[in-house]
Each structure stands twice: as C-alpha cells, then as structure tokens.
Design a protein around this nucleic acid. Sequence first.
DNA 1: TGGGAAATGATGGGGGTCAATGGGATTTGA
DNA 2: TCAAATCCCATTGACCCCCATCATTTCCCA
Lengths: 167, 167
Amino acid sequence: MLFTGTHIHKLDRKGRVSVPKRFRAALDNEEFAGIYLYQSHKESALEGCSHSHMERIAASLDELDMFSDEADDLADTILGSSHMLPYDGEGRIILPAELIEFARIEDQVAFVGRGRTFRLWNPDIFKPLQEASRTRTLNRGATLKLKPMSELPKGARPGTSDEEDAS
Amino acid sequence: MLFTGTHIHKLDRKGRVSVPKRFRAALDNEEFAGIYLYQSHKESALEGCSHSHMERIAASLDELDMFSDEADDLADTILGSSHMLPYDGEGRIILPAELIEFARIEDQVAFVGRGRTFRLWNPDIFKPLQEASRTRTLNRGATLKLKPMSELPKGARPGTSDEEDAS
DNA sequence: TGGGAAATGATGGGGGTCAATGGGATTTGA
DNA sequence: TCAAATCCCATTGACCCCCATCATTTCCCA
C-alpha cells in the first residue's frame, strides 16, 4: 500500500510504458484498474495516484466553500487536468502526448515512489535533482519525527489487516 | 463516479456534441439517461451535473429560507435556467442555442471534470484561465488538507463497494 | 554454492473493436 | 406544412486485446 523506490521503464513507440509491478501491487483491489496522472505544480514531473486517492481529493474539495476561488483553482488544476489511465492486459498505460511533452520525457520514464503517491520523471532530469535533494537533507541534519505506531491506520502495523481476506 | 480530466469534442452543425465516454460511465445507473446544464454565475461556462446531483441542489435550497432573496436568486439561476438534456443513441446531447451563446462556444466544446460536477467551455477561453489557476495555486503554495480515509463515502475506498454486485 | 530450469515481469507489434463523428431518413409537434 | 428533434446507419481512427519474445529473478537440486 506504499509506493517506494525508483523504477525506470521504457516508453515504447506506441506511447506505452509498464507500470512497475510493485506499484501495481500497491494498487490492486482498487475499483479502477489503472492510475491517475496530472502535471506537478512545482516540478517538471507528473504526479501519480490511485483512484481512491483522487476520490479523497474530490471529497476534500467538497469541504471547501463550493464557490470559493481557491476551490475553483484547485479543481481546475488537479481534477481538470488529471488523466485517468487504465492498464492494458500487461499492466501498461498510454502516456498522453500532452504529459510527455510537459515532463519532457523521451524514451525512458522514472517512476519515483513518494508513499501514498508517486511521480514520473525523465530520468535524466530527476537524477541531478535527487542528488541535490540528498545533499540538502544531509547538510540540514534533517530528522524526521516518527508517529507512534499506535496512531497509524489499521493495516499499516504488523499483526493487523485492513482487508477482509488478506490471502 | 468521478468526473476528471479535460475532454475536447466537436460541436457538429446540428448542434450536437458527444458526452465523453468516461463521463457517461460516471453517470450510468442514473435514472435519467442524460445530463443537466445551467449557466455558471461566475464564469463564461456551463455547469454540468447528474440528475441525482440536481436533486441534491434542490434539497439544499429547501434548507434556505424559502422566501429569502438568496434562495430566490439561486433557484432562478440554477433550477430556473437548467436544461435537462437526454442522450441520443450515440451518447450525444443537443446544446441549446441559448447555452452555446452564453458560453461563447464555437466549433469545439471542452468537458472539464470537477469531481462531482463538470463544466463546459469554449476551449480557447478555458485554456488561459487554467494556466492562470495553476500559477495562482503555485504562488499560494496551496496545500489541500486531505480528509481521512475513514470519512470517505463507501465505495470510494479499496475493498469496499457501493454496488449490490460489483462483479 | 554454482548451474540450470522455470516462472515472472518487461517489451514489441498486429489486428479487431468501439467511441467519436457525419449525414440521411423518419417522426413529432407547433 | 414546415422545422426541429430523433432514429438509424456509415466511416474512421484511436485504443485495447491478444500473442510472441526477451530479460531477469527465483527456485531447485546436485
């Protein structure tokens, strides 16, 4: 249920790319067999998430005032620009030309896990950024304060399950 | 059950336009095979929704003071000016001339998903506005506070279903 | 522990199917 | 009787299903 690691796959000349097995596994028993992608606000990258995560975004937008400018902007930016991409029989998606262009992707795609979501990059662009990010983190001596186990959602702890049948 | 993405379709010279397959799918098992459209009160666009969402709007209006000016105005703008548009055999609707004129639509129509609802635009008008939205979102450093999974409607979470038989 | 066999995931490509579109024919309603 | 709406069918091109091949990992047993 977590997206982790960096996986580099090939974009074939039909515009298809395999979604890493690990990511698909994190997404099974979703009602929609596929992923959502939209343009990142900050980076030359694509944001990826599951159907249920997208439902979560929509539900959270409902909470904002229906007519607020902020809700409008977020709806246009995220919901309006997202692409719902189903798998083919082999677990691939078709990357829309618009997104390929935006992320300046050429013949390879890097799937980078970010926990509940993930990003897609041109590997040549991502690599130097990752290095820089690592350096900053080290220099800062960053420490991440971990939540106590007991506050984690059920299913994220050993010995529990959030499935009816986790076979 | 969620409207996402931007889909640009052609308006033919009979005034017909195909409703995107994905939107029709989000609307099946509605009792009315078609969509509702009404003029947006903020934008040069048309607001679109399902029959059941229209019911929800009507119910919300009931909550307001029946004789308040606000209820009057909303009833006039939304319910009074809404058009109930059935599909033809191919999943198209006929865009009423009044709405075409209001949204300044020419030969193309952009269907833009907004979660529970969607909007129809002249693509040439929408595109720059969406860019502006993206820029504002970025500058605002907008972070959307996500609702916890547990508060989502049933069927929006993996491992649950809102169907009698989800086969 | 090394080698080989088997399983699984990634990649390439052909062809059928279906959504989007265009237009003619028939019906309906003013 | 005419105009507009609905039904019906034809066309086309993108997408999806299917299969074949290749690469990698896993497994098994000597």
